[in-house]
Design a protein around this nucleic acid. Sequence first.
DNA 1: GTAGATGCAAAGTATTTGCGACAAG
DNA 2: CTTGTCGCAAATACTTTGCATCTAC
Lengths: 136, 136
Amino acid sequence: MSLTIEKKCKAKGVKLTDQRKVIAKVMSESTDHPNVDELYNRVSKIDSKISIATVYRTVKLFEESGILAKHDFKGGKARYEELNEGHHDHLIDIKTGEIIEFVNEEIEELQKKVAEKHGYDLVDHKLELYGVKKKS
Amino acid sequence: MSLTIEKKCKAKGVKLTDQRKVIAKVMSESTDHPNVDELYNRVSKIDSKISIATVYRTVKLFEESGILAKHDFKGGKARYEELNEGHHDHLIDIKTGEIIEFVNEEIEELQKKVAEKHGYDLVDHKLELYGVKKKS
DNA sequence: GTAGATGCAAAGTATTTGCGACAAG
DNA sequence: CTTGTCGCAAATACTTTGCATCTAC
C-alpha cells in the first residue's frame, strides 16, 4: 500500500506530486531492494514522462524524511527499500545477489552496549552479512 | 611497519614497484582510515610523480590481495585501512567523523549463527555503528 | 627479455544541479 | 499567488581504462 507513504508525506509536510505518488506506489509494491535504475524502469512503465533526475531527487527526499532506507551494499549502486516499523538487517548471497532480511534483538542490544562502552549514544547502525548457500 | 605489507606482496606474488612501496609505507603508517584523495596527498609528499591512477590501481590490487580493507562508510568516498590479523568493526562519530575500532566476539558469534539459521556460510560481514558522544 | 606496471588524459558510472516552465497548497 | 517541483541537459565526483613507455624479476 502506498497509502502509508502518502500519509507519511503529509505528516512531514512533503508536497505530494503525481511523480512522487508513482514512485511511492512502486516502492511500496516492491518486495526487493531496487536501485535507482530499476526503480526508474518500473516507474517509467506507469508514467514514461518521469525523468530519472526526479527519481534521484525523490528517493533522496524520501530518505531524508525517513520514508525510505538507502543501502550501499558491496558492488556499486545504492539500493532502496521502504522503511517500516520493524527494523531489520540484511544477509546477502554473494553468488546470486539475493537479499534476505533478518532481525536479531541480541545483536541490537550488544551494539548499544558497545557504543555506550565507548561513551556514545547509538543513533544508527549498519549490519550486513555476506554468505554463500550451504550445500547441506 | 610497511615490511608486513611488502612481505605479503611477495607471498602473493605481487610485483613490488617503488610506487607500491610508497603506498604500502603510507598506509601502514596511517592510524586513520584515509580515502583515496587523502592517501594520494600523503603519497605525493614522498614521491610527487606517482599518479592518482596508480593509487587507485594499487589500493584495488591490495584489497584483492587481502592487504587492505575497503570501507564504504556513509557519505561518499571509499576509505582504506591495513588489514591485520585482528578483525574489528567500526564506530563512527557522526558529528566529527572520528572512527573508533572495536572488537566484539559475542556479536561475531551471533552473526555466524544468523547466517547458519538461514542456510548460509558466513564469508564476510560489515558492521558499522553510528553514534554521538554522550554529554556525560 | 618479458609480463606486468605506470602516467596521462580520456572515458565511464552514478548522482547532482542550473534553469525556465509548471503545478500543489 | 507563491513556493517548491519537474524535465532536460550539462555538470560533478569518483573511479576505471587505453595506450605508449618503462621497470621488476
